[in-house]
């Protein structure tokens, strides 16, 4: 593989352009870039979303991007959220000021802690998800979504620094 896909989210968000040294480095790791996009698609738009809908995933992703001060990435996920036809309640998730209640409140509480202070996540935080009715498989889906976002937002930030516009 030698070229980067034109719709690759990480390349687009980091604004790395052909001719730049960072672009050459990415082309040398084109396989990693393509696999990264595949994990984006699996975490955001899985064929079987289980109990975590595409709209909820996109809304949580937009929230995580905001918690990490990445407005461009937040806008990308807001677009996905609208494409998935989110309800008014689900759209609220994207706003870090919204804390919600019940199941949505539990998804948000885990997300806020895992995004910004993962070292502080303990057994009681997983128990709280179970108490709110989130099943074991959906807890794993939620953790993967958060974990993928942590990777993606750092990869983008690192690439911006690499090309000298951090």
């Amino acid at each position: 593989m030698s070229a980067l896909a034109s719709n690759d989210v990480v390349t687009e968000q980091s604004r790395v352009l052909p001719g730049e040294a960072a672009h050459e480095a990415l082309v040398a790791r084109a396989e990693v870039v393509a696999m990264t996009q595949a994990t984006h698609d699996a975490a955001l738009k899985p064929k079987d979303p289980g109990g975590l809908s595409h709209a909820e995933r996109a809304a949580l992703a937009s929230r995580i991007a905001r918690l990490n001060a990445d407005a461009g990435l937040a806008a990308h996920y807001e677009t996905l959220m609208h494409e998935a036809v989110a309800s008014a309640e689900v759209e609220c998730i994207a706003d870090p000021a919204f804390k919600g209640s019940g199941r949505i409140g539990a998804l948000i509480a885990y997300t806020d802690l895992a995004s910004t202070a993962p070292k502080d996540v303990g057994p009681s935080d997983i128990e709280a998800l179970k108490q709110a009715g989130v099943g074991d498989a959906d807890i794993v889906r939620l953790a993967e979504l958060n974990a993928f976002l942590a990777y993606q937002v750092r990869l983008i930030a690192g690439l911006k620094l690499l090309r000298g516009q951090g």
Binding site: P118, K119, V121, D125, A147, G158
Partner: peptide, 18 residues
Amino acid sequence: LILSASLFGWANRLMHTL
């Protein structure tokens, strides 16, 4: 380095929280 450090932002959030 960006990739490996970022990848462990991912792995840590699975291993440490689950």
